[in-house]
Design a protein around this nucleic acid. Structure first.
Length: 832
RNA sequence: GGGCAAGUGGCGGAACUGGUAUACGCGUUGGUCUCAAAAACCAAUGGGAGCAAUCCUGUGAGGGUUCGAUUCCCUCCUUGCCCACCA
């Protein structure tokens, strides 16, 4: 088999890459300057979590394009911040440690060193002086401080919540639970079985920021599909609350309770009320029903049903509360409305109680059929005379609706809401799908939550965040060292085992117990982009002036899987920080780009199981980092998912060899006008493509240019210098080497680095083609082509076109009805 | 079921605000070099017809708008991702 390393090519990438790597990072030529006169650009790529031996090709795939882009911007004259750090708390690292039989602390140190070395090998232009890991006490001191800010402002609180629970991992957030192919719920990491359980959890009240998160999107420049995903996740609906009186025939119990609906226009079609078994009123209602024993049994069973079972048993069931009924809010509707406890009513949605309108809701209909409940159509399709037999869920014209009959749905909604408000029986309401963010985990490897409990179990913060001198003595609350970091069998957090840490004293010397749950992985990554701005600050999380200079992040690159989790939740943090005045901008990220996946050559996902994993280290050794970088750029657009192809890296390696060989042809003052014109076109194209982040075509353009240069016997020195600069962002090592050679420098001086040189400018006139071949269309089909000079006049083109043989052939004997000439684009003729 | 993204040669992909579809690369075929192979270099390469100039056809399918549609509009199909009894 052909192996590049046996070739006797002059291009010795190993030597070249080793040399420049050591110089760049020793002198940190990629340092981001605080408060430079140059305009700033903050380019951020999601920080990796160390969970494997070393850098994976997926990382290289995600980082190469943003990094090359950051190099381009630096050459364009920007003061660029391109930082890197490690998301080292959390399950990925803990899981790796468990498997390796080491502590997370040891593993973090080892892995981050490997990753960093891998990134240096790739030539990533990172300002390593700003590196940190989220598990560094110096860092999580501020994660804890920020958490306490949430607590002080009532946005973090303890809540009894049904959460995902798994024997092996403790509790999990919704985002950490997946559905497997059989419909079973499993953990994202490890694939363990999970179920629902009630726990006292810390939650962050992100729903309170729903409206601000929606509004803030307008201020960002995110692509529409990302905005839409976040909008849908927040799930705002507008409707109204309707108050129903509830009475019992058996007891003197009575109550008033609200349901939420988006369809007040169907209010006259209500034939039953259903509530979730978790509803606060359900206990009282069961008590007042004549079948309370049966009802209580049913409610208990449904409550304990895990979502796993709910998933498989999707049938709607319920139990009627005999002798209890609801009264329609409008007096003229006299029916006694039956009340059910139903398994399909979710406590988390709306008010946890619904009005059942079977005629206009599929789910209600299914339920009504099962329990033989009345179906009262109150909306008819606008194009039909009467109601349909089917469930009609669209809007239409109201019927059987008293004074509102005849109205169109939209208008009826308003008028019904108005009447409800007038009669004090409800009113406009808004509902959000987004839930409280469960923010505690029963793991060892996370930020300890800086909360203690007094003797009666009341939580309190371990320090007042405004008292900075105390903050420094109390925070960070360090994670105690422990060899046992697996959850206990009973599900107690691992920290609960360390008794002398758990039992402590508050400021007044009262005995208190520490919170033993820790924060989720998302904690550290929710604000890391702020710390990059001022990573060494030990007096504050980040200096306001520096934040003011660097924020917002100009372009944030990451995975599509984070669109509705990390990207949304960190916006929540930031908006809260803005509200309490500790950050200067409302939105953290100006732009966002989601990266695609790199599949294996066989088209499947890369996996050790399939043995189809591509190792970046292997590629670097065999072809060099430059060829690897170029191949990753060249394969396809950043946002797309496509398979790896070993032949692509052979192609980019060959390209680099060709370029390296060209240097022998470089001479001063070579006159090559057509190459010069091509150079300017290339600069123009490449520049535009970098701005559009289309690096696959950047590589194509360089290939086209190099192909032309290969035909030349000599290459002009200045043209060559420009090519090197164009090459620099994608292939930084070879560019640096060629730059040194062409300038004849004997020794290294950081300021001479090609990566700090200005990006080439193009001359508009030179970039323009003088003559252009355009197509000649006759009746919509291309029949001929004609070479015209740029901006040639219509008359002249017309004369010449009409004389062309092929054109004459087609239009002979026919009337020319139209002659269309789009300058420099096309000629189009239409005959009868 | 809902939302989002996407369907272009054998493959990865180009195509600016509608203007010669398939740039660039891979692969394949033929050739040069070689005892031979690899590499390198040259040539061809969407499909079909033809000795040929040339013609027909072609961007998931079907309609539409237009002198002209991969691009805009409508209907549908397929794939991927996300969410999913959300009242």
């Amino acid at each position: 088999m052909y192996k590049p390393e046996t070739e006797s090519a002059e291009y010795d990438f190993r030597k070249i890459e080793q040399k420049w790597k050591s110089k760049w990072f020793k002198d940190n030529i990629y340092r981001a300057e605080d408060f430079s006169d140059r305009p700033k650009k903050y380019i951020l790529a999601e920080l990796p979590y160390p969970s494997g031996e070393s850098l994976h090709i997926g990382h290289a795939m995600r980082y190469t394009v943003p990094e090359a882009y950051s190099r381009y911007l630096r050459m364009k004259g920007y003061n660029v911040l391109f930082p890197m750090g490690w998301d080292s708390f959390g399950l990925p690292t803990e899981g790796y440690a468990l498997k390796a039989g080491k502590t997370p602390q040891e593993v973090t140190k080892e892995l981050t060193e490997n990753y960093k070395e891998g990134m240096k090998d790739m030539g990533y232009a990172v300002d390593w002086e700003r590196e940190f890991a989220t598990s560094d006490p110096d860092y999580y001191k501020w994660t804890q401080w920020l958490f306490l800010k949430f607590y002080e402002n009532g946005l973090a609180e303890l809540k009894e919540m049904p959460v995902w629970w798994c024997k092996e991992l403790g509790n999990l957030a919704d985002e950490e639970v997946l559905t497997d192919s059989e419909g079973n719920k499993i953990s994202e990491r490890g694939g363990y079985k999970v179920e629902r359980k009630l726990f006292k959890q810390w939650v962050l009240k992100i729903p309170e920021y729903a409206e601000k998160l929606l509004k803030g999107l307008e201020k960002t420049d995110f692509p529409d599909h990302i905005k839409t995903a976040q909008i849908n996740w927040i799930g705002k609906t507008e409707g109204c609350n309707v108050t129903f009186k509830i009475k019992s025939q058996n007891t003197d119990f009575s109550a008033e309770e609200e349901v939420y609906t988006t369809r007040p226009d169907t209010l006259y079609g209500v034939t039953f009320i259903a509530l979730a078994p978790e509803h606060p009123l359900s206990e009282d209602l069961i008590e007042s029903a004549s079948n309370s024993i049966e009802a209580r049994k049913y409610a208990k069973r449904v409550k304990n049903l895990s979502d796993l079972e709910k998933q498989t048993l999707k049938e709607k069931t319920g139990v009627r509360l005999e002798g209890v009924f609801a009264v329609h809010p409008f007096d003229e509707v006299q029916t006694e409305i039956p009340i059910f406890i139903g398994n399909y009513v979710l406590m988390e949605t709306g008010t946890g109680m619904i009005m059942g309108v079977p005629a206009h809701d599929e789910r209600d209909m299914e339920f009504a059929r099962k329990y033989q409940l009345n179906v009262v159509p109150v909306i008819r399709p606008p194009e039909q005379e009467s109601e349909t037999d089917e469930v009609y869920t669209e809007s239409g014209i109201l019927i059987n609706s008293g004074e509102f009959s005849g109205l169109q749905s939209e208008q009826a909604k308003e008028e019904i809401i108005q009447r409800l408000e007038e009669e004090d029986k409800g009113g406009k309401a808004v509902n959000y799908r987004i839930r409280d963010w469960v923010f505690s985990r029963q793991h060892y490897w996370g930020e300890p939550i800086p909360i203690v409990y007094d003797r009666s179990g009341n939580p309190k913060a371990i320090v007042d965040t405004n008292d900075m001198s105390k903050v420094h003595s109390v925070l960070p609350l360090e994670l105690p060292y422990s060899k046992e970091y697996e959850p206990t069998k009973e599900g107690k957090p691992p920290l609960a085992r360390i008794e002398d840490w758990v039992n402590t004293e508050d400021e007044e010397g009262n005995p208190v117990k520490r919170e033993t749950q820790t924060m989720p992985t998302w904690a550290g990554s929710s604000w890391y982009y702020l710390r990059y701005i001022d990573p060494k600050n030990d007096g504050y999380f980040a200096d306001l002036e520096k934040l003011n200079y660097w924020l917002p992040v100009d372009n944030y690159f990451g995975g599509a899987e984070h669109t509705t989790v990390h990207l949304l939740y960190s916006r929540f943090w930031h908006k809260f920080f803005y509200d309490i005045g500790i950050v200067p901008y409302e939105e953290p990220y100006e732009r966002r780009m989601n990266g695609g996946l790199l599949l294996a050559q066989d088209g499947r996902k890369m996996s050790k199981r399939y043995g189809n994993v591509v190792e970046p280290q292997h590629l670097i050794e065999n072809y060099g980092a430059d060829a690897t970088r170029m191949a990753l750029c060249f394969l396809g657009p950043y946002t797309d998912t496509y398979p790896w192809n070993e032949n692509t890296i052979k192609a980019t390696w060959r390209l680099l060899n060709n370029i390296y060989d060209l240097k022998n042809k470089v001479k001063k003052n070579v006159n090559q006008p057509s190459i010069e014109k091509l150079l300017h076109r290339t600069i123009k194209n490449v520049t535009g493509m970098f701005d559009d982040l289309k690096l696959n075509t950047v590589v194509s353009q360089i290939m086209i240019f190099v192909n032309e240069l290969k035909e030349e016997s000599a290459i002009d020195h200045d043209i060559w210098c420009n090519l090197i600069k164009l090459l620099a962002p994608v292939a930084p090592f070879i560019a640096e080497e060629l730059w040194k050679d062409v300038n004849g420098w004997e020794s290294w001086d950081p300021k001479n680095s090609v990566h700090l040189q200005p990006w080439p400018e193009y001359d508009k006139d030179l970039a323009r083609k003088d003559s252009i071949k355009i197509g000649v269309q006759i009746n919509g089909k291309i029949r001929d082509e004609i070479e015209i000079s740029r901006d040639e006049g219509e008359q002249s083109v017309r004369d010449r076109v009409l004389r062309q043989d092929n054109v004459v052939k087609y239009i002979e004997g026919k009337e020319l009805k139209k002659f269309i000439y789009v300058p420099n684009k096309i000629v189009s003729l239409v005959t009868e």
